[in-house]
Design a binder for these strands. Sequence first.
DNA 1: TCTGGGGTCCTAGGACCC
DNA 2: TCTGGGGTCCTAGGACCC
Length: 413
Amino acid sequence: MIALADCNNFYVSCERVFRPHLRDRPVIVLSNNDGCAVARSNEAKEIGVPMGAPYHQIKSLCQRNGVQVFSSNYELYGDMSGRVVSVLRRFAPELEVYSIDESFLNFSGLADPLELSVRMRRTVGQWTGIPISVGLGPTKTLAKLANRLAKKMGSGCMQIEAGDLDALSRVAIEDVWGVGRRLAVRLRRVGGLTARSFLQVPPSVVRSIGGVTLERTWRELHGTPCLDMEELPPARKNTCCSRSFGKPVTGLVELEEAVANYAVRAIRKVRAEGSLACGIQVFVMTNRFREDQAQYSNARALSLDEPTDDPIRVIRRAKELLRSIYRPGYSYKKAGVILLDLVSSHSRQGLLFEDFGNDRTREFVDAVEEVAARYGTMGGFWAAQGIDHSWRMRREMRTPRYTTHWSEIPEFG
DNA sequence: TCTGGGGTCCTAGGACCC
DNA sequence: TCTGGGGTCCTAGGACCC
């Protein structure tokens, strides 16, 4: 028996922990750059704020209805997520963190999984302040489906078995995990309107529409496990850092500064995982929504001579790539750096005839990175990152980082 | 004026090899 | 009239997830 524990409206719930008076009020959290609504309280959903709606389109709706709006505060959400997981871990020997707000737990062999789920839900609520829903099923896909029904019914916890046609018929095809908008359209054409009728579609048809991935989903819904629990997340293969700019950027100098910053952030993720990057890709693009402006987007990648985690080298190569794709005369909206083909630093392959860098450089880089990690960007940063950051993303309604910064700890009373 | 960011997997098709 | 067969590797694009 697999359990899926899913935090309700997670980002909104995190904000509410520290602002309890918002508990019954409509609240939304915006994406980076205050772009779209990515989390909505139930009250905000009822008012009619759509998921992913651009904020500028729903701003007046929010004002009319007194919706509390927040910029996203990923440091807070990341920390709260860790707290929830630490509570969940007490309830099962095997746990897979699936996303920032969802974990699978292996409840196989445990007595009365439903009662355990109810207890787990209550404990997480008491200890972290975050409300969760729990779905139970013989496969991951069925646990997901049970979770969706638990949320819909407001019961908090729900268990389903393979072949529970009544439950399956209450979930529309596009709400099945693994079936997105495109596949849903094609499945409806062959009679798959709900999870239940999807199961009647012959496997050969399923395969021709969605390949082996969709066939896996189909089997999982039938009760045959095809997706294993993954306790240790597999090593990442690429990592990316990209942002939309708070204002359009035209000049190369500003773009270079932004790209240098993204390169540093990306390589810090790589260093934190004990990996090395074998390649770099840089991309830039204009605002695709502006039909009145000339559009341009481009990307270029290169392979490094030697796998690296050196921010100096990564910044230099990223700037070279940027210069090769930069075209003057455009208003750029977004840029990004992707580090490719990550390998473990333990399996490092050096150069045969040449060796880049030396120990002194390495010690210097490590020292700067440690200072930056310990004291923040004000403690130390690479000159290429610049100081002004006029292109920085908007984040005008962000709450304090209550749980991760001493100076931002909440005070009550 | 204003429209997110970060991933994975699969497949088709082209280039190339013998 | 007639134009092989079998393989690998890489990339771009499409689909999905949160």
